[in-house]
Design a binder for these strands. Structure first.
Lengths: 204, 204
DNA sequence: CTATATTTGTGAACACTGTTCATTATTATA
DNA sequence: TATAATAATGAACAGTGTTCACAAATATAG
């Protein structure tokens, strides 16, 4: 079989995803339609359904790409040897990713739409989230092995850490911060996270 | 002027809000249309626009009602004299509210739609959120006056606490927990919050 | 090189959505 | 009772996700 066919098929799927992502960044996920996506690369809307089952599959695929991008932004953390410092840096990188890719972050951790694609067989797990959570858990475990976090459970502690950074990121992205008159609006995210790190340091 | 007119006017608006809320709980906000809301109380869709400017205003009004409901669920906290214990109980009540009213919580803290109603004059603030945050801040301040939280900033610390409980609540409501294989899926929320309280106790 | 299959793309159609508006029914006022 | 004001309707508009019969392009077989 000539590779031309299947190669082109992947190229079109890729073009659809790229076009979708571009529009999502430009005008938001909600205000981007299938016709918008298809039209922006010179196709009809119906043709998109030859490459993706529905809109949810596009959202889920981009959601997965988001996790790839996030993981690659975590690469620098390998340089940090102390696990607690690494964990704190991981939180900072997480917050930076959410701030720099708000639409992507929303698909990964907030929107229900990408999860609907898994609903077909409900046994299927959210592997991307589970994998990312595992790397956090491993770091917490390393901390414990060094004697930190005495009296704390690894999994529950990890979930708490995740929740804190996700809470900050999602409140910010959902416009719930800029409409509350904080003393230092621009710094509240950074300073808030510093408070958290300060608490963690006391668990040494 | 006879009160019959304006009274009925308020009644209809009330009926619309109640019908909307009922449908939101039953089948979710996204899958509830204006025609659904109007039809469920025997009206045409167009008539709803005599009582509410648009769908965003309905969502914003219910969002405000959500804050009323949440505040009333905070009433029991007056009984807790120690500010740190009160703050911990407040977090627990916050999590309980989010779990018991997921759709309402979404309107209050996650969805952009209710905020769009404020976008007309962007100077307007998110008073409901600001007020609720203030009660948390006051509690943190009381803690400081008792000598707790030494070296921590009141506002930044308050934001961090809010983020933690919001993170837990929103991850749970967004189906990001039940699809990750936790060791104890039913307890992770409760146990995770306990870990946070344990950290707070060390700041005494 | 032609004839047949197969893949790829189209555009109309369906059942929805939020919103507007002329028209009608109802109610209140003079 | 006649008039003015309010309340309610249903059609219309532009948009949505999705499906599907059909047409164009391409690949395969003889």
């Amino acid at each position: 079989m000539s590779p031309t066919l299947s190669d082109r098929k992947e190229d079109v799927a890729e073009a659809i995803l790229d076009a979708a992502m571009k529009l999502f960044v430009e005008k938001g996920v909600d205000k981007t339609s299938m016709r918008n996506i298809a039209g922006s690369i010179g196709y009809s809307a119906g043709n998109v359904y030859l490459y993706f089952k529905n809109k949810a599959e596009i959202l889920h695929t981009l959601h997965s790409r988001g996790f790839q991008k996030m993981r690659s932004s975590f690469d620098v953390l390998r340089m940090v040897s102390d696990p607690l410092e690494r964990m704190k840096a991981m939180g900072k990188a997480y917050l930076a990713f959410a701030a720099e890719n708000p639409q992507l972050y929303n698909l990964m951790f907030v929107s229900m739409a990408p999860m609907k694609h898994l609903d077909a067989d409900c046994s299927e797990n959210w592997t991307e989230g589970a994998t990312t959570f595992m790397t956090l858990k491993n770091t917490v475990e390393e901390c414990k092995q060094l004697g930190y976090f005495a009296g704390h459970d690894i999994e529950h502690m990890s979930f708490m850490v995740w929740s804190t950074v996700h809470g900050m990121a999602s409140l910010s992205n959902a416009q719930r911060i800029n409409r509350v008159k904080f003393e230092n609006p621009d710094q509240v995210l950074e300073k808030g996270y510093e408070e958290f790190c300060l608490m963690l340091d006391r668990l040494k």
